[in-house]
Design a protein around this nucleic acid. Structure first.
Lengths: 336, 336
DNA sequence: CTGTTAGCGCATTCAA
DNA sequence: TTGAATGCGCTAACAG
């Protein structure tokens, strides 16, 4: 018969063991040792050590409305970009003793909604979110309740909250410039459905702009990766045109992966028959084919910045919502 | 002046709004609607809807000792294996309304220790951990307190807790058989420091066994990936031997990545000059070089199984600790 | 069927 | 410097 009894020691036992009142123990826990006689400080310390006491975050949280938990909601934790960001968030959280609740939404607004409600029930102190943009009402509620929110990667101007992004427009333009300079005259932009998602939008717009300025007709393929054949079809169509130097700019890492897959299956040579470039960078980009030229996002830094911002808000910073823009970097490899 | 007041609605307000006592509301929340008159059920439902009420997990947790949170501790969340597992855990958690606290240890026992204490303070209901193996005392405490633990990937026999692993020995032997059959006579095993970490140990032992049975002398390189040069040195040494068909079996995904890196830098052709095979599988393994032959771990399934186990334990299953062994699968590509 | 009461573990007045 | 009392939001007897 196993004992399922929660033997978890409470403040009461510590108080009894140390021969003081629990108020005094509480004072000790909260670092107000200067209000306690040296004698009792010693005793309490001893009691805590010997009993392995650790104050309950639940009880503390209930009392002071501080759960020491922050929520992290991403569309897809499988995405290396998300993981890198999480790592950054975690780094800062550790520093301040926060824990992280991680939630996946699969880009589905209903699931995001559920997660938000769940996190709300946990009294999270802050929220870092890569949002679908369809649950602004709940986000507003958080804000109203004094829970700071930081949007990562995806902006939502109407929400007026802190945001951490990258310089998508500039960097996209610069990358395209390089592509044109290399003689790629016929550049297509492949993207997942834009759908009001800001980084996709910005990259697409930058592409259009650049193409126009070069007097080229933009070629944009919005591809739903769940539709198995769509990528193939768009790719084949693009390849069939008998222009000279063709290249594809892939709108994000996931799309790039699928794109290369198709290219390999089709036996198309990179960069011989087609040049490619994209966004996001991972350790294996340099190992695929000739190495992929890409825009490296400072995702780890973004995570750190986001959590850092949460912290300052929690400390009472009431200044206007800020957009922190970190710079992506073009990593030149041989795929162009 | 922003209002920081927690406007979060409580059970009391719902009770008042609905004109009933909070006990009745509590009954409603806990699904005991059959104990309540239809009339009041209606009123409470209305009140909850209009007030957007959601019971506080903190308060509930404090009361019933059920935080609805489980802890997930991994050495490195950046590792795709960890992420896939997390995904599996999450899937089951969603089903039952659990939230996940994710922690990184970087394989450092002290950090793991800290995380364990933190999670303990949060009254987690279950723990899924890829442990360093150096904090068995705390793990024992969890167990004693009735918090079920599931070890993923790494075993710890002395702990007597549920464990989810893969058939490392068998699959390693099978892979090696295939390698020998393909004529690779000179196979080395590259691994991160074994250090009592069970999967590494098992793979290494399987390698030794197979080599011996073929009357080959095992060539084992334990490589600390933090030592920048070590991989290169071991690799060069192995390459210098003037045997005929050489191959390397890489002990895990991270090591494989570094290995290929070196190979590419050295300009060594795969599989022309050397054959390689490894463990873990990711979407890009098939895109690197000729495609990497590897053992795919059912990491997603492992996560699911782990959380599933937690759940049955939570439901009162007191049977003896179980080791769930899921089967890895050899994915044959062209790197051999 | 329903409300009253008493805590869960803690922090915070308020007196002493 | 200290302890007793109160309540955070909720659930679980216990009456009625």
């Amino acid at each position: 018969m196993k004992e399922k009894k929660q033997t978890k020691v409470t403040i009461n036992e510590v108080a009894a063991y140390a021969g003081v009142s629990k108020s005094t123990v509480s004072r000790y826990i909260n670092g107000r040792t200067n209000e306690i006689s040296a004698e009792k400080v010693r005793k309490i310390k001893k009691a805590i050590d010997e009993l392995h006491y650790r104050p309950s975050q639940l009880a503390q949280g209930l009392k002071v409305r501080k759960s020491k938990v922050i929520g992290f909601i991403v569309a897809d934790i499988t995405n290396p970009f998300s993981v890198a960001t999480l790592r950054g968030v975690e780094e800062i959280c550790d520093e301040y003793g926060y824990s992280i609740m991680v939630c996946n939404t699969d880009n589905r607004p209903e699931k995001e909604r559920e997660m938000l409600l769940k996190l709300n029930a946990h009294y999270i102190e802050g929220l870092i979110i890569n949002t679908t943009g369809q649950n602004n009402d709940i986000l507003q509620d958080f804000k109203k309740n004094g829970v700071p929110i930081v949007l990562v990667d995806r902006k939502l101007p109407e929400l007026k909250v802190d945001t951490v992004t990258t310089n998508n427009r500039d960097i996209t333009i610069r990358l395209l410039q390089q592509m044109y300079e290399k003689g790629y005259d016929h550049i297509a932009f492949f993207t997942e459905p834009v759908d009001g998602i800001s980084p996709r939008e910005e990259r697409k717009e930058a592409y259009e702009l650049t193409a126009m300025s070069k007097h080229k007709k933009p070629i944009i393929a919005e591809i739903d990766l769940k539709q198995k054949e769509q990528m193939r079809e768009e790719l084949v169509r693009f390849l069939q045109s008998n222009e000279q130097k063709k290249a594809i700019l892939a709108g994000n890492g996931l799309l790039m992966l699928k794109l290369i897959n198709e290219l390999v299956e089709l036996g198309i040579k990179i960069p011989g028959e087609i040049g490619i470039a994209g966004f996001d960078d991972t350790e294996w980009y340099k190992l695929i084919g000739p190495g992929i030229t890409t825009v490296a996002q400072p995702s780890h830094e973004m995570g750190k910045a986001a959590m850092q911002k949460i912290k300052t808000r929690l400390e009472g910073d009431e200044s206007a919502p800020q957009t922190i823009q970190l710079d992506g970097e073009i990593i030149v490899r041989k795929s162009l």
